[in-house]
Each structure stands twice: as C-alpha cells, then as structure tokens.
C-alpha cells in the first residue's frame, strides 16, 4: 500500500495563464509538485527545472547492442558455425552484412527505447487510473502542489495563490498513485 498524498491543484483554461502562474510561483518560492496538461507546453521544462531527457542515450546504447548482435551473430555463423560457399563469395562478406546489421540496430534501439520510456514514465496496463481531474486530458492545464502532512500548513496560501493567478477551479484531492 502506497502512502496517500494530499494534492492541491488549480485548473487553468489556457497554457499561457499556466505559464504565468508557474513563473509567479517560482518567484514566490513555492514548491510545485507537477504540472499536468493535455499536450506538451513549450517553455515549461526550464521553469520547472526539468533537465533534458536522457532517453536518446538509452536509444544509442540499445542501438549499439543491436548492431553488435547482428554483426557478430552473422560473422560467427559464416566463419565458425557453418562456413558455406555462396556463389564463390568470401566466407566473411562484410558488405552483405550491412542491411541486416542496420535493421537490427534500428530494431533494438526502437524497441529498447520505447520499453525504457514506458518503464521510467511508470506506464503500465491497469484497469483503473487515478487522475486529478477528468478535464486535464481534455482542455485544462493543471498546476499541482503537495500538501501532505506538514505541508498542509501552506494550503491556504497556495489556494489563494492559485485563485489569484486565474485558476478556474481549485481543489484538494487525496491520491495514492502520483
């Protein structure tokens, strides 16, 4: 059983309002838990202090593994396991290995990266998903603060801050999965 969290959140109608609110929140030194939106908002990541994703590094590593797997596997078969003459060509025809090596590079890189993406995002198939508000995946932009335990002392100030910056709805919700 995960510990439950109390989340105070405000919904904005426009991404520009949300961006302004995030800037204001940073100015006042309020600690934002997260921002939820129906589509990616450009210019938000630096405000939240998010570093660039390192997924592409994972993609490169998986791709390298794929290239080596393909190339070494074919080399082992053609040189060691079962040398065979195809049309009088050499036993180790490196140029002819390029297509399969390339395909396996792309395959490993793509599959590996997507699996990594699902795992680090915590995405998994479940029949119920807890969301802060149903409209977040539709047209509302959500700014959320964690007000569990000691942090609840701030709740009043945060609530008035959210209203002040133009949130159309402010609510507190108990979440076990965020």
């Amino acid at each position: 059983m995960k510990t439950k969290k109390n989340i105070l959140f405000g919904l904005y109608d426009d991404e520009q309002d949300l961006l302004k609110a995030v800037k204001e929140s940073n100015k006042r030194g309020l600690k934002i838990m997260d921002v939820y939106s129906p589509f990616p908002i450009h210019g938000l990541d630096p405000l939240l202090g998010l570093k660039e994703s390192r997924l592409h590094i994972a993609g490169f590593i998986f791709g390298t593994i794929g290239a080596l797997t393909g190339f070494l596997f074919m080399s082992w078969i053609f040189k060691i396991d079962w040398p065979n003459v195809f049309g009088g060509k050499p036993f180790w025809p490196i140029p002819a290995f390029i297509p399969v090596t390339f395909e396996l590079t792309v395959l490993f890189s793509g599959v590996g990266m997507v699996i990594t993406y699902f795992i680090i995002n915590g995405l998994s198939m479940k029949s119920e998903t807890e969301v802060l508000h149903d409209r977040i995946s539709d047209d509302k932009f959500c700014l959320a603060y964690d007000v569990t335990g000691d942090a609840s002392a701030n709740a009043g100030a945060l609530e008035s801050f959210l209203k002040e910056t133009g949130a159309s709805l402010v609510e507190t919700k108990e979440m076990s999965d965020l």
Binding site: P40, E52, S53, L55, V114, Y117, K126
Partner: peptide, 28 residues
C-alpha cells in the same frame, strides 16, 4: 485505462514523449 497505460500527462511525461517521438522519427 488499460490501453492508455495509465497516462497522466505530467510535464516530465510530455518531455519524454517528445524525446522518444523525435528519436523514433530519426530512426524511422
């Protein structure tokens, strides 16, 4: 809920989404 894999749409989710889309495009 099952098909969407519990997608939440947090800022980090979207950042990774854009990153993975771009690299997959580069591979594809």
């Amino acid at each position: 809920s099952a098909l969407s894999f519990g997608w939440k749409g947090s800022a980090k989710n979207w950042q990774r989404f854009e990153s993975v889309s771009l690299v997959l495009a580069g591979l594809a």
